[in-house]
Amino acid sequence: MAAGGDHGSPDSYRSPLASRYASPEMCFVFSDRYKFRTWRQLWLWLAEAEQTLGLPITDEQIQEMKSNLENIDFKMAAEEEKRLRHDVMAHVHTFGHCCPKAAGIIHLGATSCYVGDNTDLIILRNALDLLLPKLARVISRLADFAKERASLPTLGFTHFQPAQLTTVGKRCCLWIQDLCMDLQNLKRVRDDLRFRGVKGTTGTQASFLQLFEGDDHKVEQLDKMVTEKAGFKRAFIITGQTYTRKVDIEVLSVLASLGASVHKICTDIRLLANLKEMEEPFEKQQIGSSAMPYKRNPMRSERCCSLARHLMTLVMDPLQTASVQWFERTLDDSANRRICLAEAFLTADTILNTLQNISEGLVVYPKVIERRIRQELPFMATENIIMAMVKAGGSRQDCHEKIRVLSQQAASVVKQEGGDNDLIERIQVDAYFSPIHSQLDHLLDPSSFTGRASQQVQRFLEEEVYPLLKPYESVMKVKAELCL
């Protein structure tokens, strides 16, 4: 049975990233139509530049190519590739079939990587351009969430054990800070992308030097003109047959890092959902379990974690691919890159769409948070109580021993009897502590235990987050809708 299948058929496997999760716009960027249309555009740009620099290419040939950029006979191309065992030459023939007058000058002087690699770089750039505003929107939604809850005390956790208090907004800023680093890295790697350009079979530009009869300047002009037509500021000066596969490492490393950030955020949300302090959106008709109707599973956060793990592992592909590119190139890269580049971007696209949807509907339960604080705060307040007693004339050592005994009794009630923490009640009825009984409410005010959390939130948002989001103001209103 021949390899390949009808990918629109229910009898043929289709990647869930495309069929179930990723956005239509990201799927289109990695589609065959987008790819092969870009090949034709690159052939047109090459012909236009070659004509401008004096090669015998007519206006009629150029116009014929322009008129057929979208006229792609995919069936013919597939048949040609089956016959020739070469995808680029299959599309040269297919393009030439609908451009008979231009057929002889299509791909003039070029090698397969002229269309293959340059198209990949265009796709990487455009895919990054799709991700950047999506990530900015996630940051914006979380920034709104953090600002609104900047002063809401909550129990902090280290080692997932109760620690000092923080605020809900401050905790959210930990998430935002990681995503801001990801946004900066995505922008950097996007701006650092260079075009492969017009380089020939081993990167020496020998074929173009021959076409222009040894004119170095025209060869350099050709490279520059096509690079500018493709919208790049610069091209690699040095290439082998391909652009260095280190570029793929750079791009997928940034995406993998984004995956790590999203995994951490969504894990926190899942843990908070278990504590009943916070939940992701839950639709009115949504079913959490087929057997347990009360369940409210954090399905979206779980999906993000599941896909983020996949995204983090994909960076190993370009690392290994770059390491086995012998001399000017081997074909070890080809099949692998067809999979890992598309999957990385479709996965990143999915987790950003999902995280935006989550961040637009996060639900906080202040009463649950308050109750958990009441359970733990008495123990945390013991040092403040000791200091207040010393100020009232008591002995630190005597007070410490009193607190120690009462704390152990209260802990026994919590752990052995399943009761509430009654340390404060014990202190309130103990005559030894009568000098500070009137101060206990103040000493137990949760806001006095959150330090500068709310001020940190305000400063972080104003100095770091809002300036970073400013270039994306025009796209901030787009909502994230999930079908599944």
Results as ranks from 00 to 15, higher is better:
194 R>V: 04
368 V>R: 11
445 D>A: 12
250 E>R: 10
462 E>D: 11
212 F>P: 01
28 F>M: 12
441 D>E: 13
140 S>I: 14
171 R>G: 00
446 P>C: 03
244 T>A: 12
59 D>G: 11
45 W>Y: 14
116 G>S: 13
100 P>R: 09
462 E>W: 12
368 V>P: 03
380 M>I: 09
196 R>G: 08
28 F>T: 09
193 L>Y: 05
176 I>F: 02
30 F>S: 02
163 A>P: 01
245 R>Q: 08
198 V>Q: 01
293 P>A: 15
319 L>A: 01
412 S>D: 13
222 L>K: 02
473 E>W: 11
324 V>K: 04
314 L>A: 12
97 H>N: 12
52 T>S: 12
119 T>S: 14
442 H>A: 13
271 L>P: 00
124 L>C: 12
353 N>E: 14
406 L>K: 10
265 I>F: 15
273 A>R: 00
42 L>P: 02
314 L>R: 09
320 Q>V: 10
172 C>I: 07
353 N>R: 15
394 G>L: 13
113 C>R: 02
389 M>L: 07
37 R>M: 14
289 S>F: 00
95 F>C: 02
394 G>R: 11
2 A>S: 13
373 I>V: 11
135 L>H: 08
329 R>N: 05
408 Q>P: 04
284 K>H: 14
310 H>G: 07
411 A>C: 13
386 I>L: 01
278 M>P: 02
327 F>V: 10
415 K>E: 08
112 S>Q: 04
190 R>H: 11
132 L>D: 12
438 S>W: 06
172 C>V: 13
20 R>S: 00
25 E>W: 01
97 H>F: 14
108 L>G: 05
54 G>Y: 03
202 T>N: 08
50 E>S: 09
122 I>D: 00
212 F>L: 10
382 T>E: 08
207 S>P: 07
389 M>A: 00
221 Q>M: 14
480 A>C: 15
464 E>N: 06
349 D>E: 10
483 C>Y: 08
166 T>M: 09
151 S>D: 10
116 G>K: 00
112 S>Y: 00
257 S>I: 08
71 N>H: 12
56 P>S: 11
329 R>A: 04
55 L>Q: 14
436 I>C: 04
442 H>K: 11
33 R>A: 12
303 R>F: 00
186 L>P: 00
467 P>K: 07
285 Q>R: 12
379 F>H: 13
343 E>C: 01
7 H>V: 11
452 R>Y: 06
59 D>T: 11
152 L>V: 11
155 L>P: 02
191 D>I: 09
91 H>S: 12
6 D>E: 15
446 P>T: 04
359 S>H: 12
4 G>A: 15
79 E>M: 09
335 A>N: 04
447 S>V: 11
401 E>Q: 13
11 D>V: 08
